[in-house]
Design a protein around this nucleic acid. Structure first.
Ligand SMILES: [Mn+2]
Ligand SMILES: [Mn+2]
Ligand SMILES: [Mn+2]
Ligand SMILES: [Mn+2]
Lengths: 227, 227
DNA sequence: ATTTTATTTTAGACAAATCTAAATTTTATT
DNA sequence: AATAAAATTTAGATTTGTCTAAAATAAAAT
């Protein structure tokens, strides 16, 4: 019924990988978890036996609905703990992922629900990722990478696609955080860098590399009028 | 350098058992941890190799100073998390031990110290047990079991030596909690039961079984005058 | 001082999670 | 369609933490 820490890490990994594609491969999981393909195959057999993944050898795999349900409770715990660390204990958001990787495996439904209540039922974690509620429901992220946006479009930073201290340093330097509104003033084809405007600051340029890791909720932009 | 969860559980167990006696035995640890004596011997070899216990076969064992230091950080985490669960998340004190058994193994010095600060540097956990500070120092518990006290002595409940829901139920019924002041009005030799007085309640009788599990800080009682 | 009992350790086995190397299957390339 | 390359699985080990049963040692009882 309950899963080990190792099993939970595989379940969560498959969950994240299958957000993009319908079937996940052995090697994808192996490289994500820094483990060998052989170990992944071993674990898949175990998870199949527990009916948490749908798996046929050589064919790829995905979570069953029970597997997805378990994944959502792990993701819920991970993000709630991250919110706790940042909102209550004053950690920076680049410090919390590692600790949440441990805390997400604590087993106690009551603890999670009380933590959720204590935090005021937050809908998003410090990186802008949605937190599943106790039924596994969470907000959709209707957002695009800033790198894919065009000149004159505007939006609001909704998530950060990388949790490194190096990225935080750059964002802090430029006064960018989740919730910051921006308008794209120019896009330079040479290096795909962008000139953007944010409130209370002069225009400045950000690299394509940076733009790729910033996710934006578009505003003032009606898809019906976009021909 | 860092220890596994299993190792930490042995270290903590030896720490608690050696509070009473100078040398701990294999069987004591085995029965405390509900494991076999053979497993304890196996683990002792490992802990000896890591220089965390002083152990000679057939002779008993105790923690080295490094072992004690590690034990204190585990106890610190355990009790701080219990304080968090009760003081911030509104758990009852009979619900928190199991969860703290998991949380005490989370590895992050910074987390523990921030948690301590967030809680306002509590000196005692919800069961009245002292919380080591970040240097491993903690208040001495100058307390005796209520069962060992005599008629006319008075004191204040400082710790509960058992964390069962059944005990909490009885204490709640009698309006006893940590901090409650009491005076012993009578001790009945037949069954060692005691008649006690607490503020705002009539005299009532408690069993020897209960008294054994209540720890009391004596007050208004000067040992110099006790002939 | 023997003998009996209790305690502790050793021997050997097992499950979980991992690995490397070899075998198999699938996919891509000529 | 045959062959080469890539991906995946299997075979066989290894480490950690556990177990039972047997052997060794220590403690208690006669
Ligand atoms: Mn994270
Ligand atoms: Mn996050
Ligand atoms: Mn406890
Ligand atoms: Mn406690």
């Amino acid at each position: 019924m309950t899963s080990t820490v190792a099993e939970e890490n595989y379940i969560k990994t498959i969950f994240h990988l299958q957000e993009d594609v319908s079937l996940v491969s052995t090697n994808e999981v192996a490289s994500y978890l820094n483990t060998s393909a052989a170990s992944v195959t071993d674990m898949l057999k175990k998870l199949k036996l527990k009916r948490l993944v749908a798996y046929e050898k050589y064919k790829g795999f995905k979570l069953t609905s029970e597997g997805k349900k378990q994944a959502l409770t792990i993701v819920r715990k991970h993000r709630l703990w991250e919110a706790f660390l940042v909102n209550k204990l004053q950690f920076r958001w680049d410090e919390v992922h590692e600790i949440a990787e441990q805390l997400e495996h604590i087993q106690s439904k009551k603890l999670v629900d009380k933590l959720d209540e204590f935090l005021g039922y937050p809908k998003f974690d410090p990186h802008g990722d949605p937190i599943p509620d106790s039924n596994g429901k969470m907000y959709e992220q209707i957002q695009t990478s800033l790198a894919e946006m065009n000149i004159h479009e505007s939006g609001e930073i909704s998530a950060i696609g990388n949790q490194s201290t190096a990225l935080l340093e750059l964002l802090t330097h430029n006064n960018i955080q989740i919730g910051t509104k921006l308008v794209i003033h120019a896009v330079f084809s040479f290096d795909k860098s962008m000139e953007i405007k944010i409130p209370n600051a002069p225009l400045f340029i950000i690299s394509y590399e940076l733009a790729k890791h910033l996710f934006v909720k578009k505003v003032g932009y009606d898809p019906k009028n976009s021909s």
